[in-house]
Write a protein that binds this DNA or RNA. Structure first.
Lengths: 332, 332
DNA sequence: TTGTACGCGTTATCAA
DNA sequence: TTGATAACGCGTACAA
């Protein structure tokens, strides 16, 4: 069932069929004959052949680590919405190992299977970035940064500072920090920025920076649990804990439960991201517009083609819920 | 940068390059020359052209409604794992409206953009199924059933019966049921099966079936809340509630909180699915192997090509946690 | 307004 | 073991 069959059925040439399909000038009567033939034969253009001729595929690639984590799902949601609206399909490149990451960075951009590539939370090194740029494939980074590409990032430093300032404003001075770690060789750099925010807030309040109050864990619940546990085993446990992601904050909450500390009475907890679960569990957190970041990313991919790369910073917002409260000093 | 460039660089014909790439017989020395040329030119085969010649794309389509819901995410996880292992990419067709659903059912199978289509929780009607079958595209259904295609389903009736039997075994006799509804024209049919399981369990225990104890809601938290709320407003509220999905069960839990009923002391709650959240919130539930269903689906798609369609029923299992307990009768 | 013929980058077939 | 060439199905100049 190809374009020749339709042409024969409608007794026209394939050129005419193509024009009917792609909106060229065709006499009304001819158009109708072709349309009837198409309908009768149940003809649908072969998209592979189409992209070969056209030089584009109508497909956007999205490269994302651990896509089942809530943060990435939210970004994906935004991506899907924007792509669907623009009539593009999306193919998912999930990254769980260094090997996958390297493989994708090396091959994906030159295969021309996609019209654009959205990379989430993964940072190409300079050599990879150079190769990608030379391949000419539009690339946009979300939650990651590289000078060669348009990047959408939340104000990581500012957001972290906001979180810690919130805790300080509640009277806390011994504030633990469960930060995220580099998983594999993925080159996340959010962790550094958030650490800077943490330090800035302390410094501004005249609180000494104590590196032993920092625990670096994986960006998931198990990691958060380990962090919360470690911080509570100290002789002088912190009265508040800032976790670099909501998932880690959930782990911290679990650790608190195991240590039989009441949140927020004994310990205040604040997370980062504002995933759906945070609302469900009443977790105070720093919200970043995850879905929107995905949407913006796709729009940049589609419409920001030839503009020079730029960094789009989106706002973080404090969402106060019920896991943080004024430090109980024992005084009335 | 195409195969001709490589051929020229290595002073061979494109046929030889192709053979090096696809594993034909090539003299070692020639092979190395070609490989060097490939490396030097950073050549990567154009996958569009490749699929045109090959007649296949190496891509699997997955059509799924509301893909951000935990159940679908879990299925997707299984799909992604299996597809990656088999060296296939996946393109995501998210369905949120009837229109999208119809569009995809009509066009997707004949465009030959994918080598196989996995359809999750969506049921084609007979006409659609016929067209798809005629298009010759391998299709597998997950969490849905149609006689034309291999289908992977959990024992919906058995699972629901298990849930209600569990409640009955705890002494409950007035058992509410928050079932799921047909959203749009998506033709879910899980709801009917689960209703049957509910009735069977009651009947087996000699309990009268009371249709007013059933509330039909959307398959999400908001729906569950409405259901829980409605059931609690009765003069004789149920002592236990079975929700057709964990998401709805979460809504029911929220409703209980609003009505200031203690779970499980005042009311026992059981869900269905066993999403990650269920563990986090200690929800008793009926587990279905969501991830595995995705994996099996892909395997069937890839290896079950010419075998006749069959229905693969996977097991449901009771996972007892802390939202169900023996009915408190007031007697010691 | 319509038809012809070429190009897109591969794979596969067949002859050498 | 290698090279030449015909598909694959479409878009699109260009000619008619």
């Amino acid at each position: 069932m190809n374009i020749y069959d339709v042409a024969r059925e409608a007794t026209v040439s394939i050129g005419t069929v193509s024009r009917v399909l792609n909106g060229g000038y065709v006499k009304q009567a001819t158009r109708e004959r072709v349309l009837t033939a198409i309908h009768k034969l149940d003809y649908v253009p072969n998209s592979g052949a189409r992209s070969l001729g056209l030089g584009r595929t109508g497909v956007l690639g999205i490269m994302v680590p651990f896509f089942t984590r809530p943060f990435f799902i939210e970004v994906l949601r935004g991506v899907e919405m924007a792509a669907a609206k623009a009539g593009h399909e999306i193919v998912l490149y999930n990254v769980e190992t260094d090997q996958q990451r390297d493989n994708y960075f090396k091959r994906l951009p030159m295969r021309k299977r996609v019209d654009g590539l959205l990379i989430v939370s993964l940072r190409p090194d300079d050599q990879e970035a150079t190769r990608i740029r030379e391949a000419g494939l539009p690339v946009v980074l979300v939650d990651a940064y590289h000078p060669f590409f348009t990047s959408i990032v939340v104000e990581n430093t500012g957001g972290a500072r906001m979180a810690v300032e919130h805790l300080i404003s509640l009277g806390h001075r011994r504030i633990g920090f469960v930060n995220g770690m580099v998983e594999g060789a993925f080159h996340f750099n959010q962790a550094d920025d958030r650490l800077n925010g943490y330090r800035e807030a302390l410094m501004a309040a005249g609180i000494d920076f104590d590196p032993t109050l920092i625990y670096v864990s994986e960006w998931n619940r198990a990691g958060g649990m380990k962090g919360g546990d470690a911080l509570l085993r100290r002789d002088d446990p912190p009265t508040a804990i800032f976790a670099a992601s909501d998932l880690q904050a959930l782990g911290v909450l679990e650790a608190m439960r195991q240590h039989e500390r009441n949140v927020p009475h004994d310990v205040s907890i604040i997370g980062f991201d504002n995933i759906e679960l945070a609302e469900l569990l009443n977790l105070t957190t720093i919200a970043q517009p995850m879905c929107e970041m995905g949407t913006i990313g796709v729009e940049q991919l589609l419409h920001g083609k030839d503009e020079p790369p730029r960094t789009i910073q989106v706002e973080a917002k404090l969402v106060q819920r019920q896991t943080t409260q004024r430090l109980f000093t024992g005084v009335t």
